[in-house]
Structure formats: structure tokens, C-alpha cells
Design a protein around this nucleic acid. Sequence first.
DNA 1: AAGACAAGCAACCGCAGGTCC
DNA 2: CGGACCTGCGGTTGCTTGTCT
Length: 279
Amino acid sequence: MVRAPCCEKMGLKKGPWTPQEDQILISYIQKYGHGNWRALPKQAGLLRCGKSCRLRWTNYLRPDIKRGNFSIEEEETIIKLHEMLGNRWSAIAARLPGRTDNEIKNVWHTHLKKRLKQNQANPETKLQPTNCDSNAPVQSESSSLNVPSQQGFESPAYTTMSPQTSSSDDISSATDASMATMDQNNMTNNVKGEHIDIWETFPEIDEGFWSESPLAENTSMPSSLLANNDELLQAQFPFNSTELVEPDYSDGSNIIDDGMDFWYNLFIGAGGSPELSEF
DNA sequence: AAGACAAGCAACCGCAGGTCC
DNA sequence: CGGACCTGCGGTTGCTTGTCT
């Protein structure tokens, strides 16, 4: 089978994404969904291959991505799941709302694997937080574990509004039972010290929200959120994809945050948790 | 202050499997 | 039925940033 060329196509850009490219992609997907990744960049006016767009969206721009440090609970969950599943990062990610397989993979390779080795060498050492945050002080190996459990949930408003729908979530039914139990224990989020069940926090989302619905469906957004978002859309994305305008970042604004705010506002507007609206 | 080194992470690569025609 | 296409996944790379000397 001969594979179609991808990024080696002449003129297609590679490497880090610019805020402008992000905004184009967000705007396009927000408006039209992502029925066909290959066709998307051409239609959106991006000099990227579809694969690159898909990766950027799923790993970084998706509205339910949770950024920031991993909490102790998340790290322990990753370790447990890795014991059970091995390097099946997408399956692990499916059990960690808001986290991507790529992110989990990175954390595993950069923190957890190392720490597990240390723990094996010294079993009395408790699990240490990763302190991904460069501002966080580095904990010494011997320091005791005393970290707030909600550490790392920087933007809870954007997290976990629907169950992750990793297509490769083909965990055996044998493990599903234990997973279900684990989900019950882990599918919660701490917001300002309050324990909030994430499935209660967010409005109910259509099953097809994250599906690869074709363009004919017009959007991948939940239909419940589409009713009156035109003004919000205009406020957050004051341009359209066919008439691309260079966004003004001179005020220090951030396209990612703006995009996330857009989603956040939609959820609050659609009946999101009052606790979250404090953010 | 500057260079070397290490760590973290975004992005790419290539394969596999599913779907469509 | 088989080839072409599309998407998802895991492994890997390489750039950026922080730390050390």
C-alpha cells in the first residue's frame, strides 16, 4: 500500500505553531468542526498538513485540555494505570480527563519513570510531586509529601466537560470493572478547596460533541451551546476564517487564553457551575 | 557573563487499523 | 475484494528554557 505524502509536500510549514495559526485553527474548527483533517488546512488557509493541525488541536487547543502541573492524584493514577496498561498512553489519557496522551507520555518519561526508579531504590520514599511549574521550588528527595491535592489545576473551568473519547480506548472488560471503580474515585476536581464532581459541574454534552462529525453538521460544538453564541463568537474571535485579520496582541493578550475564555464563557452561559464562574 | 549541560515539552514520524469507493 | 485514504497511536526528535560551572 502506497501512503500518501504528508508534510513533505512543498510549502507546508513545520515546527512550532504561531498564535496566529492557532487562532485560525480554533476559529475554523469552532465554526465548521473538523470533519476532514486533510482538507481542513486548505479550507482554513493554513500552510500545515492535516496531521499537524490534528495534533495541535488534540494536544493543545482543544477546549477541555487541562494545562499545568499534574496533581499527586493524577500522577498516582498514571502510575497505577501504567502498571495495568503499559505504554498505552491514549487509554491512560482516557482515564485522566483533560490530559492528553502526549502530555501523559511526557510526564511519564520526564518525571514518573525516574521517580519510580528512585522509589524502587528507596521504597520508603513517598511519591513526590513533579513540580512541573518552573516557579515551584524543587523539593528535596527527603522532603515529606505535603502538597495540596489540587495543585496544578490551573484552569478548572476548561477541564473535563465530557468523558474523553479516545478511539483506542479498547481496554479489556476485565480491567474496565476496576477502571470504573477508579473513575468513581478520580473523576473529581478540586476548585478552590471544594470537591466538585466534574460530571455534575458541566452541562450535559451531546455524545457527538467530540465525534468527527462531518462538516454538514456545521460544528463539533454541542448543539445546546450553539443557540446564541454569535455575539460571543464575535467578541472572542473578531474575524472570520475567510477574511483573516492579524490579531492585535500589543496589549499582551493571549490567543490561547482568549480561545479558552470563549469556551469557558459558553459553559458558564450554558449553565456551568457557579463555583467555576468565580474564575 | 557566558558557555555547557540537563530537563521539559511541543511537534513530527511512521505504522496500524478502520472506512470508503 | 483490494487499493486509497483518513485517523489514531506510540516512539522519537529537537527546540526552548532553566541550572550549573
